[in-house]
Computed example of a mutant assay.
Amino acid sequence: MGRIVTRHPVTRVRLGSEPVRRADTLAVEEPLEVRVHGTPLAVTMRTPGHDAELATGFLVSEGVVASGAEVLGAIHCGGPGTGLSGEPNTYNVLDLTLAPGVALPSSDIARNFYTTSSCGVCGKASIEAIETISRFELHDDETELDAEMIARLPERLRAQQAAFDKTGGLHAAALVDVASGEMLVVREDVGRHNAVDKVIGWAAQQGRLPLRGTVLQVSGRASFELVQKAVMAGIPVLSAVSAPSSLAVELAVEAGLTLIGFVRDPSMVVYAHPHRLRMPCVGRAAPRARA
């Protein structure tokens, strides 16, 4: 599972009381360098664990591969130390091997891939680019689901966030099967885009792409990067607890993605393609009896 949490001494201050020195639990954040056939491709700040899923999902999101079968293997190799000790570590560099016939990422792409836990992928910032490289069509996806199901997803996701309970510092993403209502996979990470990449990477490894008939539920806002990743994986519905950005909405509209924000039972705001939601029936109030 990796080093998800760590302990660190802190001073808790409450006005009117004496400060208290105690140990606190923190979410681990460490760099991961993703290599393809030994060549560095990207660096992301992530919570260790499910690194192969993260890297595979990243390649799917960026159009390098379209399925898990196009990634033959992933192996951790020696990399720089982390922390003040500077000790060598073997878990922060991951080298991927692509299947024969799969084109390697160009050097131009590699130069543009630098990610952080706050902003996601920097470099691909145009809707036209996403539309050009996406291999899955969302406009013809006939997925339909009840609004009540969407309204309950944040609470269901929150119940699965074991690491968040300990740290309060991790984002989460879940993939939900519309037909069964089953939450297929949940991943947590210090970066919201990493959590989504881990979910998509899991699906790719399971041979589930494109992810028709699913919902991607995220614990925070819906950024352009998250919409991009959903589109690239063929996910027809993205549901977020907080607001989307303007560019996220534009991409969702163009790509055919149903984008829902401010999902807080019993309400939500649908920003793009509401036709996939079956709205609740509202009964008429009974007439008042006359005195």
Score class of each variant (00 low, 15 high):
S85A: 13
G86R: 07
G86N: 05
E87N: 13
E87D: 12
E87Y: 11
E87Q: 14
E87I: 07
N89C: 12
N89Y: 02
Y91L: 13
Y91E: 11
Y91A: 14
Y91R: 15
N92C: 10
N92L: 07
N92H: 11
N92R: 08
L94N: 00
L94I: 02
D95P: 03
L96R: 00
T97V: 00
T97D: 00
L98N: 10
A99T: 10
P100I: 00
P100V: 00
P100H: 00
G101Q: 04
V102W: 12
A103Q: 12
L104N: 09
L104H: 13
L104M: 14
P105A: 04
S107V: 07
S107W: 04
D108Y: 06
D108F: 03
D108K: 08
A110S: 13
A110R: 15
R111A: 14
R111Q: 15
N112I: 01
Y114A: 12
T115E: 08
T116G: 12
T116C: 09
T116M: 06
S117C: 01
C119V: 07
C119P: 01
C119D: 10
C119Y: 08
G120M: 04
V121I: 09
C122N: 13
C122L: 14
G123F: 04
K124I: 12
K124V: 00
A125K: 11
A125F: 08
I127D: 15
A129P: 02
I130K: 06
E131S: 11
I133C: 04
S134R: 15
S134M: 05
S134Q: 05
R135A: 13
R135P: 09
F136S: 06
H139C: 07
H139W: 12
H139G: 02
D140N: 10
D141E: 13
D141C: 07
E142Q: 12
E142A: 14
T143Y: 06
T143W: 07
E144G: 03
E144V: 11
L145Y: 04
D146M: 09
D146K: 14
A147P: 00
A147Y: 04
M149K: 01
I150D: 01
A151S: 02
R152D: 00
L153Y: 03
L153Q: 06
P154K: 01
P154L: 04
E155V: 09
E155K: 09
L157A: 02
A159S: 15
Q160D: 01
A163I: 03
F164C: 03
F164R: 13
F164N: 12
D165E: 15
D165N: 10
D165F: 10
K166S: 14
K166L: 15
L170I: 03
H171P: 10
H171L: 14
H171D: 08
H171N: 15
A173I: 10
A173P: 04
A174Q: 10
A174I: 04
L175F: 11
L175A: 13
L175K: 15
V176Q: 03
V176Y: 03
